[in-house]
């Protein structure tokens, strides 16, 4: 087909579209095209320069961010109050999802390391959507809950492993003594 006509009759979400990006996130992978369209209207596209603060530790948290392009470094303060980098996230990653349903202060800081495009999804948008189309909101929340529970499970496993390690260490120390 002539490229001009192909352009006019194009229907499937192309790779640049926001719906395509959202569909390829693990959180929203099971949403239908219609649900993705509604989600597309709900999220906010924000552009950041390099070294710009997305949020600081202690800021009021009201939603999650997904990285469409660029990179974000997550910092946390240790017990002396010095910031250290916890992790570095890139395109397709998301962060801040714990404050989406329950309002809480941010527990870490997020700063961009290069020019970054973030997609924000906030609690107020979800609450509004829950009134307008509960079915769509529930599938979005299901997707989110799945990912959050996977993360929770992974971290509980990690806690258990560390606990065992600590127990073994203390046992070894006491037997040495």
């Amino acid at each position: 087909m002539d490229p001009l006509w192909r352009n006019i009759f194009r229907k499937t979400p192309d790779e640049d579209s926001l719906a395509y990006f959202l569909k390829h996130l693990p959180t929203f992978s099971e949403l239908t095209i219609r649900e993705l369209k509604l989600l597309e209207d709900m999220v906010h596209i924000r552009n950041y320069k390099a070294d710009e603060t997305v949020f600081e530790e202690g800021d009021p948290g009201s939603g999650m961010y997904m990285i469409r392009s660029g990179a974000v470094a997550i910092f946390a303060k240790d017990h002396t109050g010095v910031e250290e980098e916890v992790t570095r996230l890139t395109s397709g990653d998301f962060f801040g999802e714990t404050t989406l349903t329950a309002p809480a202060p941010r527990t870490a800081s997020a700063r961009t390391t290069e020019a970054t495009e973030l997609i924000g999804l906030f609690r107020s948008d979800l609450l509004e959507m829950a009134e307008r189309s509960p079915a769509v909101t529930s599938s979005i929340l299901f997707g989110l809950t799945r990912v959050v529970s996977e993360r929770l499970q992974a971290s509980s496993n990690e806690v258990r492993r560390l606990k065992n390690q600590l127990n073994e260490q203390t046992l070894a120390e006491t037997s040495k003594a």
Partner: peptide, 9 residues
């Protein structure tokens, strides 16, 4: 950007 989240909420 820095205040967007709060203003939106």
């Amino acid at each position: 950007n820095r205040h967007f989240e709060m203003i939106h909420d």
